[in-house]
Design a protein around this nucleic acid. Structure first.
Length: 515
RNA sequence: GGUCCGUUCGUCUAGGGGUUAGGACAGUAGAUUUUCAUUCUACCAACAGGGGUUCGAUUCCCCUACGGACUACCA
């Protein structure tokens, strides 16, 4: 019988979620939706030392902003609640016990100092891979080496202990990764991983396998950094007797720094001048204790659709020439087979381009709405009718990359120039031009056709009477009306401004600028 | 060091035993816009290297180089 597809995104709340994590969540989501399955989120907070307040809420808001919906999560619940590992703490010990009983795990009483000493000894002896394993465990203090009654006595006296997995000495562990094909690792490369920590919490490895099994996860899609520990996980499934329902693994290629080398880290963002986080994050510097702010895509003016579209293409592509995809289209087109093996470098130009595309595709009415709120926030009054606002939005959006550019570009419609571009004035301004423009201003209020074409016709006609060529005044006219040397089409600007306001602006400029 | 993973234009990538190795972003040039931007057109630009296998390899295999991840009582 076919099992229902169930995937999970399992972040740990140790700080803001960066774009690599968002992409992992996205691919999980796309696969779940594509296959009609369920997407769940599980908080992996088994390390209480690394807990960061606010991180969980940040994750929730980030996914929401991105449009990644969760069917089961700590916040909406679900059939396998709770979805926070810290709240599932009581259930892990029994599974560790199961492994203890079947001889696949053992107690270890070594202190941190003893562990350090082991490592130091092995390193000094130039052992190729120094680790706590099938060979070295015989020299350590654990339930394999200690007499049974001493183990019991240590346990009874409350001596701190961990539970380690007894990894076999020689065995090939293999699994078929959905992205990479067969991956084979020899068990000698895996150490006796701690399963239960001395604080009674499971480690990631144990909790992950137990929860994925209990939550009936069918596909584990996660970053490539997990590839080396995947064989360990396979071993765990085997020892639990869960191999027949073991999820399929898919290890995603890493996201690299745009410059230099290495995987993208949380610190790269502000160093390189682009966000690595979906949302702005207010944190605390671990060393100095000073508050820190890391920029986010949302605050940077990126549209979530653009951000998601871009992110989807970092490591995946549909195999067609189509570049623009809505979430729905991504869901339909997504297959795990088309995820690439090689790491991807982040490209700032491409995200910007995506944002421009999505911004321009927005209805003018929606952009107008944004414009009004933004301008009001800046304390600029907006008293245009809706249709004019839409015209403004439509005119200005071709010049914008971010939504914030809209307000900046549109400002000229709401505020008269406070200064005039000196370059243009010194080159183009003279008595004749001033005279011509004055005549134009006089003619404007009586204009019958106030469309861009009508205004242009009027301007041409007035200038002809003056014996002035249009090319001589156009730049100057733009400066009198907008103050700037560049901007949207001037005829459209004057048309939207209306003859009265345009005329007044021209007259104001003429009165202020020495001819 | 060890284990594992990877390597097509500057970047994201398509392709795949015989192709003018395709697209997008960026860059450059031109056209349009009597502005800047937009738009349009064109151009630039890649199979890491060496061995095999083969009539033929960028594509399959091996080696090398390079890059990366992992190597905690972190996830």
């Amino acid at each position: 019988m076919e099992r229902e597809v169930r995937v999970r995104f399992a972040p740990s709340p140790t700080g803001p979620l960066h774009i690599g994590g968002v992409r992992t969540a996205l691919y999980n989501y796309l696969l779940a939706r594509k296959l009609g399955g369920k997407m769940l989120l599980r908080i992996e907070d088994t390390d209480q030392n690394r807990f960061v307040p606010g991180a969980e809420e940040y994750i929730r808001q980030s996914l929401e902003w991105c449009g990644i919906e969760l069917d089961e999560s700590p916040w909406v619940g679900g059939p396998h609640a709770p979805y926070r590992q810290s709240e599932r703490k009581p259930m892990y010990m029994q599974y560790a016990q199961q492994l203890l009983d079947s001889g696949h795990a053992y107690y270890a009483f070594d202190t941190p100092e003893e562990l350090d000493a082991l490592r130091a000894r092995l390193t000094a002896a130039k052992v190729p891979n120094p680790q706590y394993n099938s060979i070295t465990r015989s020299q350590m203090r654990n339930s394999l080496t200690l007499p049974e009654d001493e183990v019991k006595q240590l346990l009874d006296s409350g001596t701190p202990y961990v539970i380690r997995l007894k990894v076999p000495r020689k065995e090939e562990v293999r699994f078929n990764d959905l992205i990479r094909g067969w991956v084979v690792v020899h068990s000698s490369a895996i150490d006796d991983k701690v399963l239960m920590k001395s604080d009674g919490m499971p480690t990631y490895h144990l909790a992950n396998i137990v929860d994925d099994h209990l939550m009936e996860i069918t596909h584990v899609i996660r970053g490539e950094e997990w590839l080396p520990s995947a064989p360990l996980h396979v071993l765990l499934y085997r020892y639990f007797g869960w191999e027949s329902t073991m999820p399929q693994f898919a290890h995603l290629p890493l996201l690299l720094k745009p410059d230099g080398t290495g995987k993208l880290s949380k610190r790269d963002g502000d160093r390189l001048g682009f966000p690595v986080f979906p949302l702005e994050w207010h944190g605390v510097d671990a060393e100095t204790g000073q508050p820190t702010v890391s920029s986010g895509y949302r605050e940077g003016g990126y549209l979530p659709e653009a951000f998601i579209n871009f992110l989807a293409f970092l490591g995946w592509n549909p195999g067609t020439q189509q570049e623009l995809f809505t979430m729905q289209e991504l869901i339909e087109a997504f297959t795990i087979e088309r995820v690439s093996k090689s790491p991807a470098r982040f490209d700032q130009n491409k995200v910007r381009w995506y944002n421009e595309q999505y911004l321009r595709a927005k209805p003018d009415a929606e952009l107008a709405q944004y414009l009004v709120t933004e301008l009001n926030e800046q304390g600029i009054g907006v008293d245009y009718p809706a249709d004019k606002l839409e015209q403004i939005a439509g005119l200005v959006k071709e010049r914008a990359t971010f939504s914030a550019d809209l307000a900046r570009e549109a400002q000229l419609f709401f505020e008269r120039p406070s200064s005039y571009d000196q370059q243009v004035i010194s080159k183009k301004w003279n008595a004749q031009v001033a005279g011509g423009l004055t005549e134009f201003a006089k003619a404007l209020p009586a204009a019958t056709d106030t469309t861009p074409d009508g205004i242009k016709a009027l301007l041409t006609q007035v200038l002809e009477q003056q014996g002035i060529k249009i090319g001589q005044v156009l730049q100057a006219l733009r400066v009198t009306v907008t103050g700037a040397s560049a901007g949207p089409d001037l005829m459209h600007i004057m048309s939207i401004l209306g003859p009265q306001e345009t005329a007044e602006r021209i007259e104001l400029a003429v009165s202020q600028l020495p001819a």
